[in-house]
């Protein structure tokens, strides 16, 4: 599974994989952190347009990036949430922690 990234002026958009579970989470975490460090990212956007499944492992990845970027004064947001991912955000309380951009 390849994860896609777009980058412009200190902003990084991570196009999340189709399924995010513990198995997928590690690669996602390692690649995202590498790019954050290499490009001095201040604004991280998780794009869920391709995501059909996410469990609590995905929540761990998002909260982890929020903490890391928060220490450096950066911000994290999410966009293109389908109904399912919205429900996951709601149940986990994630929508209180990160900004969700309107579709």
């Amino acid at each position: 599974m390849e994860n896609y990234y777009e980058r412009e002026k200190g902003s990084l958009t991570v196009v999340m994989p189709r399924e995010i579970d513990h198995h997928q989470a590690n690669q996602l975490r390692v690649e995202t952190d590498m790019l954050i460090e290499a490009y001095h990212v201040r604004h991280l956007v998780f794009d869920f347009s391709k995501t059909e499944f996410m469990d609590s492992s995905g929540i761990g990845v998002i909260i982890g990036r929020c903490k890391n970027l928060g220490y450096q004064g950066g911000e994290v947001s999410a966009k293109n949430l389908n109904d399912r991912i919205q429900k996951i955000f709601l149940v986990s309380g994630l929508q209180k922690i990160i900004k969700v951009e309107e579709n």
């Binding site: 609590s56 492992s57 761990g60 909260i63 149940v91 986990s92």
Partner: peptide, 15 residues
Amino acid sequence: ELERSGMGFAFMEAF
């Protein structure tokens, strides 16, 4: 250390 969210059982109970 594995960045587990601690939400596993909460998710099972929610769903």
